[in-house]
Simulated scan of single mutants.
Amino acid sequence: MQQIEIDENEAGQRLDKFLHKFMPVAPSSFFYKMLRKKNITLNGKKAEGNEKLIIGDVLCLYLSDETIHNFKAGSVRTDEYEEAYKKLKDIQVVYEDRHIVIVYKPSGILTQKAAAEDLSVNEWLIGYLLKKGSINKMQLSTYKPSVCNRLDRNTFGMVICAKSLAGSQKISSLLKNREIRKFYRMFVKGQVVKEELLEGYLVKDESNNKSHLLKGDEGMKGSPVKTRYYPVSRFRDRTLVEAELITGKPHQLRIHMAGIGHPVLGDYKYGDRTFNDRYKRQYQINSQLLCACRLEFPKLEGTFEGLSRRVIEIPLPGEFQMLMKEQ
């Protein structure tokens, strides 16, 4: 017999949905048979399967360990999480509370895996929480913590991650409604002299995995994008710029800045190869100098009051610091 007490990450869903997550190999007919025969009970009573679980509910599975193991076979493995936590040592926790973790991702690390063999921030997060004891292997069968927003592999900066289901739902809602303000700093080619609001439409070309910025009626079928930027410091042939990502589409900042003649330094996809090569030779710049450096949260109440109007900012990476000292 196995007893499970429902916590906040499992509450709010139907009993049958929870059972499918817990033993994903088992067919629905098995669950309903076990519920009917009272081999699976909820709070000591017969259940139908359509009950909404709440925190503190007790689920009893009067099944053999072998049966549970077989129906869970292959559903939860922690190897890759532990490996990611050991290997991706440069990821750092910037902020953490009961529901979320905000981490710093260096350039060169994926936010989420692109192939089965990849290790990303997503796997690192679960490895970190397992190491801390914030989650255990059994809990991973019904809820997996995950990243809430993405950064390109070669972008530096902060990634918001959800530890709990409540955290995931809240951050997803805030991001969807654009209530979290996201600021980036970047080195761009040339002299930027004034603040400007950029608008347009992004259209992706699947043949070469690049997006294009269009304006006016021609772009109406694309995704609308909006970026506000202003110069912070000007140097001989480059400017340190801060930008607010008002919308959040892949490659948006890089495309917008390239579109006005100020491509991001180190960006070979949309930028200036000659300009980039010169910095690569002289300063060993091997990544695009774009960093998600500041998050500003709105007024929040209740469970998430600790994040209310909180501003979270990180120092710029070493590559930025080096170029800020060079004219």
Results as ranks from 00 to 15, higher is better:
S207T: 14
P231Y: 10
F18K: 06
K210I: 06
C291M: 10
L130G: 13
Y201A: 06
G318C: 04
I180Q: 11
S172I: 03
I4T: 08
F71T: 12
Y62T: 07
L295Q: 03
P24Y: 00
E51T: 08
N208C: 10
N70H: 10
D57N: 14
R77W: 03
F297G: 01
S120P: 04
L307Y: 00
Y184I: 03
D79I: 04
E48I: 11
E296P: 09
T67K: 14
K280H: 13
K226H: 04
P106E: 06
K249D: 04
Y128K: 13
V101S: 07
P317C: 03
L265R: 03
G200W: 00
K89Q: 15
F320C: 11
L35V: 03
L290Q: 02
Y270D: 01
F275M: 01
N154R: 11
E242H: 08
F30M: 15
I160A: 09
R236N: 13
R36V: 04
E199V: 11
I180Y: 04
Q321T: 05
K86D: 12
R234T: 15
M158Q: 14
S223M: 08
Q284A: 14
L129Q: 01
A47T: 02
E195G: 14
E179V: 05
K299A: 14
S64T: 15
H69S: 13
Y95H: 12
S233A: 13
M324H: 10
V58Y: 08
H262R: 04
V147G: 00
L129G: 04
K46M: 14
K144W: 04
L197D: 10
V93T: 15
R254C: 03
M257H: 01
K89N: 12
L15E: 06
D272G: 02
R14K: 15
V76N: 09
G222L: 02
R150L: 12
S141T: 11
H20Y: 05
K170H: 08
L42T: 10
E195F: 04
T303N: 08
L59N: 00
A162M: 09
M138P: 05
L214G: 09
S141F: 00
K221I: 07
K170W: 00
P24R: 08
K182G: 06
Y184D: 06
K38W: 02
L175Q: 01
N209W: 07
K215N: 10
S287I: 02
F71A: 10
N177S: 09
F275D: 02
D205I: 07
C293S: 14
L289A: 07
A26H: 12
L15W: 00
V76W: 02
R281I: 07
M23S: 10
C291G: 07
V232E: 15
S287K: 12
S172F: 01
K132C: 08
I260C: 05
L175A: 11
I160Q: 12
S141I: 04
S308Q: 10
Y32K: 13
V103I: 06
E117P: 05
V203M: 13
E319A: 09
T303C: 10
Y229H: 06
K226T: 12
N149M: 07
K194S: 14
G127S: 11
L130K: 03
G318Y: 07
E313P: 04
E179S: 11
P317Q: 06
E319V: 08
L289H: 09
H251M: 08
Y230V: 10
I4D: 05
D97L: 14
C60V: 08
G271H: 01
V264A: 12
S75Y: 05
S107A: 15
G56E: 09
K170I: 02
